Amino acid sequence: MSKNYIIFGASQGLGDAFVKGLPVEGDTVWIVSRTRPNSLDVNDGVNRRWLAIDLSSQQQIPYLKETMKDIAIDVLIYNVGVWEKRGFEDDYTFDLDEVEDIASLMNINLTSTITYVQALLPHLRQAENGKIIFIGSTAGLAHTGNAQVSFVTSKFGLRGITNALREHLRKDKISVTCINPGELAAEVPFEEGAETAIKLYEGTRIPVQDIVTIVQCVIQLSPVSCVKEINIPAMTDLNA
């Protein structure tokens, strides 16, 4: 039986890997992103549709609702997360983060997560085995040695969203899962394969294929089971 997916943050990296690696022939995928995804050009029997939405505001929620109308959604994957402008630079310090940038990060990573998912709950309730999967980060776990205050806060918050939403949807038998990967080899396109990513980063970054495989497992479970949270650091990451 064919499935309907909607994947947020799907124009590149891990989101692009989900769009290319999860659906099979006959499935439909709505791709939510600001920029046009190149996955629209893939010809593999999957119906891919682009929703050009900027998640920095809530203004396009009516457009999302109107576009989806009465369509049942089997799988919603929310793979969105921005971080501090210099968050991964050696000289990064929270002291220099701009107030406007902090507010924008929290809006995208938390407020938009709640509001856009809320808009799609009626569509998930129409599915026989609805799944919501949030992509978090090991930065949102305890004691991972990360000093990016706003990003870490937002990823802790995403776990809170997951837990509360799961309780809200328990009566509907819609499972809500948070997957927390460590550092990903997201720059290596999905079609180039896991071995390419492993070789390039000498096994220090997780191939996107590994996360796709985990999500496939969660999707295939019956409505009886609920995976609450999965943490997947790289083997070389001693802080996670």
Rank of each mutant, 00 (worst) to 15 (best):
M1N: 08
K3V: 05
N4G: 06
Y5Q: 06
G9H: 00
G9V: 09
A10N: 08
S11V: 00
G13M: 09
L14T: 10
L14C: 13
G15W: 05
A17G: 06
F18I: 06
K20Y: 02
V24M: 09
V24H: 13
E25W: 09
E25H: 11
T28L: 06
V29M: 04
V32Y: 04
V32H: 08
P37Q: 10
D41H: 12
V46E: 05
V46F: 01
R48K: 03
W50I: 00
L51N: 02
S57N: 14
P62V: 09
M68S: 04
K69Q: 14
I71Q: 14
I71N: 14
I73E: 08
I73V: 15
V75Y: 00
N79D: 13
N79F: 02
V80P: 03
V82A: 05
V82L: 02
W83V: 10
W83M: 13
K85F: 04
R86E: 13
R86Y: 07
D95S: 10
L96F: 13
L96P: 02
L96A: 14
E98T: 02
E98N: 03
E98V: 10
I102S: 05
A103C: 06
A103N: 12
A103M: 13
S104M: 12
N107G: 11
L110H: 00
I114L: 11
I114P: 00
L120D: 02
R125H: 07
R125V: 11
Q126M: 14
A127S: 15
A127R: 03
E128F: 02
I132M: 00
F134D: 04
F134T: 07
I135R: 03
S137V: 09
L141I: 14
A142Y: 14
T144H: 10
S150G: 06
S150A: 15
F151D: 11
F151P: 06
S154F: 02
K155S: 00
K155H: 05
K155W: 06
K155P: 03
G157M: 04
R159S: 15
R159M: 07
R166D: 10
H168Q: 12
L169S: 07
R170A: 12
D172P: 00
K173C: 04
K173T: 00
C178D: 12
C178E: 09
N180C: 14
P181S: 08
E183M: 13
A185I: 11
E187S: 11
V188Y: 06
P189Q: 01
E192M: 15
E192T: 04
E192L: 15
A194W: 07
E195F: 10
E195C: 07
A197V: 08
I198S: 01
Y201E: 06
Y201G: 05
G203R: 08
P207L: 07
P207C: 10
Q209V: 00
V215L: 01
Q216A: 05
C217V: 14
I219T: 09
I219C: 09
I219Y: 03
Q220Y: 01
Q220I: 00
Q220R: 11
L221V: 00
P223D: 00
C226P: 01
K228W: 07
I230T: 12
N231A: 14
I232C: 09
P233C: 12
T236Q: 13
